[in-house]
Design a protein around this nucleic acid. Structure first.
Ligand code: FES
Ligand code: FES
Lengths: 176, 176
DNA sequence: AAATTAAAGGATAATTTTGTCCTTATATGG
DNA sequence: CCATATAAGGACAAAATTATCCTTTAATTT
C-alpha cells in the first residue's frame, strides 16, 4: 500500500522526494524526422520559387539547430530525396526528379523503417502468426499513417505553407 | 540494412561511401512504454490466476531488463495503475480497483502525453488555428490510437494472452 | 522480536539521440 | 586560375533514454 507523504499535508517533504522519474516526450517521429520533414517541405517551397536553400537558412526557417539540420540534409541528399549543389549560389533543391519521393521515404531515410514494420511492443518481429496484444489494432493505425506519408504530396504540402494555410515554424505566443 | 532502390541507377557509388549515419529505431512507444504495457498485461494475467508477480519474474517473462522493469513498475504503482505489496509473497497485482485503468493511462504515466497532445512535427503547440502541414492528417490517426488505448480492456488483452492468441514475449525463431 | 523477502528509492553507468565545431572537398563567379 | 561560398564529412560534446547496482523501507513468516 502506497504510504508516500500526502502532498497537501506534507508538501515540503513531497517536494524533497519529488520527481525521481523524468518526464519524457515521445512523439510518432524522432526529432531528426521532424526536422527532415519540415526541411524538405521548406526546400520545396524555395524550389517552387526557383531558388535554392542553404543549410543555415533552412535550420533557422524551420526552428531546428543548424548543424544538426545540415547532417539531416546530407542524409536526404544521399538518399536522393533532394538535390544539392556546392559553392556560391549553391544549396539544396527539389525538382521533377524528386516529385515522386514521399514523406515515408524521408522518415525511412532518417529513422529506418521500424516504425512501419517493427512490432509496436518491441517483439523481435511483427507477425500475424505470433501477434503481440496490440498487433491487430496497431496494424490498422500504422497503415493509415503509412498511407498518409506515401500519398500526401510534399510539393502540395509546400504550396499550403506558401499560401499560409499551415506552418513549418514555431507558433508565436500571440494567440490565446 | 536499408538499401532502397536507386531509380537513377548509380547505387553502387552510394555503397562506397556507406553509412556514416547510424540506423535508429523509432517506434510509436518508447521502450519504457512498451515494457510498461507488457508488464501490466502480465500482471493482469497473474491476477486473473489469483497470484502476484515480482519485478524479477515480470522482467524475465516480458523480455525486459529486470532492474529497469522494476523502475517502471514503481511508476505504474505510484500512478495507482497497479497495486504492490512488499515482503514475502509480495509483488504487483491488479484488482477491481484497477479495472477502469487504460493503456493510455499507462503510456501517459511513463511517457507523458506529448504523443497524444503535442504537435507531430514538434511545433511548440498543436493547434487547429496554426496547424503544421501534417496536422489535419495526424489528428485522425492520433485519435484512432487514442481510442484504441482507451477502449481496449487491459484485462481482456491479458485473457487473450492466456488463451495463447497473442504473445507478450519475444517470438522464437521457430516459425517461418 | 527476528529473519526473510520483495518493493522503493538513490546513485551511477551505458547507450542512443541530439547537437556542435572544425576541416575538407567542390562548384561557381570573377 | 583564384577566391569564395557552400555542402560533405569527421570528431567530439551534451542531453535524453535505457539499464544496472546497491541501500533502505516495509511487509510476512517464523
Ligand atoms: S506483433 Fe506487435 S505489432 Fe505486430
Ligand atoms: S499542429 Fe502539428 S500536429 Fe497539430
Amino acid at each position: 500500500m502506497d504510504k508516500r507523504p500526502d502532498p497537501i499535508g506534507f508538501g515540503f517533504f513531497a517536494f524533497v522526494k519529488m520527481n525521481i522519474f523524468r518526464i519524457k516526450s515521445s512523439y510518432m517521429f524522432s526529432k531528426a524526422s521532424q526536422y527532415a520533414i519540415k526541411a524538405i517541405i521548406y526546400i520545396w517551397m524555395k524550389s517552387l520559387q526557383d531558388s535554392k536553400a542553404g543549410a543555415k537558412e533552412i535550420g533557422s526557417e524551420i526552428d531546428a539547430p543548424e548543424a544538426f539540420t545540415a547532417k539531416i540534409l546530407q542524409q536526404l541528399s544521399r538518399a536522393k530525396l533532394i538535390g544539392s549543389v556546392k559553392g556560391p549560389n549553391g544549396g539544396f533543391y527539389a525538382d521533377e526528379s524528386h516529385t515522386n519521393k514521399t514523406l515515408k521515404d524521408v522518415v525511412r531515410a532518417v529513422d529506418g523503417d521500424s516504425l512501419f514494420t517493427g512490432c509496436s511492443l518491441g517483439l523481435n518481429k511483427c507477425s500475424e502468426k505470433n501477434p503481440c496484444p496490440l498487433h491487430f489494432e496497431i496494424v490498422g493505425i500504422r497503415q493509415k499513417l503509412d498511407q498518409m506519408l506515401t500519398n500526401k504530396s510534399i510539393k502540395h504540402l509546400a504550396v499550403e505553407v506558401i499560401k499560409g494555410e499551415t506552418n513549418i515554424k514555431r507558433i508565436l505566443q500571440v494567440n490565446k
